[in-house]
């Protein structure tokens, strides 16, 4: 299985960190349910064009964080994660996404007021259409 993750050419965030965060997002979002097998560090490195040092580090961090587990001789799998971690990570993912959006807004010269306005509109549009 090829994971839908992507190493950004623009981001200065270390590659292992990008990989770690994207896999976390897929697990928290439910796209990778518990017990899903993950590609080996060698296969993932090949897919992403990085070295196994990077993918090993990302997997080690995910394992320490309780997101994945390695079964000797069988491979790496998604773990059942606790609700608290799920909630915390969910918030962090959203927080980071907003952080990035604001960063890009600043780059194109958006003011604080303009960004507030855009934020309100996006929220309004998205939640109205979904009836939420």
């Amino acid at each position: 299985m090829k994971l839908p993750i992507h190493v950004s050419e623009e981001s200065r965030v270390p590659i292992y960190h990008q990989v770690e965060n994207q896999i976390k997002t897929l697990i928290i979002g439910g796209q990778l349910p518990p017990e899903t097998p993950l590609p080996s560090i060698r296969v993932l490195a090949s897919d992403l064009g990085c070295s196994v040092i990077t993918t090993r580090r990302a997997y080690q961090n995910l394992e320490v964080g309780g997101f994945i587990k390695t079964v000797q001789g069988k491979g790496t799998f998604v773990r059942e994660i606790e609700k608290v971690i799920k909630q915390e990570t969910k918030q962090k993912v959203v927080y980071d996404a907003f952080e990035k959006a604001v960063d890009q807004g600043k780059q194109v010269g958006c003011t604080k007021e303009e960004m507030h306005q855009i934020f309100k509109e996006v929220i309004k549009r998205n939640f109205k259409e979904n009836g939420g």
Partner: peptide, 11 residues
């Protein structure tokens, strides 16, 4: 060099 070092350092 390690491939990822290049990715991290060259820009």
């Amino acid at each position: 060099f390690n491939k990822d070092e290049v990715y991290e350092n060259w820009a």
